[in-house]
Design a protein around this nucleic acid. Sequence first.
DNA 1: GCCAACGTTGGC
DNA 2: GCCAACGTTGGC
Length: 136
Amino acid sequence: MRYFLLKTDPSQYSVSDLQRDHRTVWDGVANAQAVGFIRRMKPGDGAFLYHSGGEPAILGLARIVSEPRPDPRHPKSWVVDVEFQRLVEPPVTLPEIKGDSRFRGWALVRQPRLSTMDVPEEFLDWMRQHYPSLQL
DNA sequence: GCCAACGTTGGC
DNA sequence: GCCAACGTTGGC
């Protein structure tokens, strides 16, 4: 089981929208590198939900609930179904992540425009320590 | 709202 | 296949 991070612009589709919808098709990912991560996802994998725009932060946890598949509407895009799991409270803010030298190499810090990525083991450890109730 | 970074497109 | 122009994203 792996963990990924999914960015969303909250003015388009927010974590509370997913909480309300419970399940959605995660679409709009066309960038080749990001699509590469979508294609590596497996049902049962975890996904941190991140708001870009507004206060950049991780504020939810979701589960991948389908195999990835090409988006029939957009040739270069791939989609996957995700299901809301939990809110991350309090949210883990970008400044907090940037401020920790252990995460310096993470694409979240290094490549601001990458919308979908994997999550380094160091961050998972940190999360397990600080958010034990998430049972990561 | 601005703008830097960077990905994509299209003309050659 | 290169690269200039252009568009988009995301952080501030």
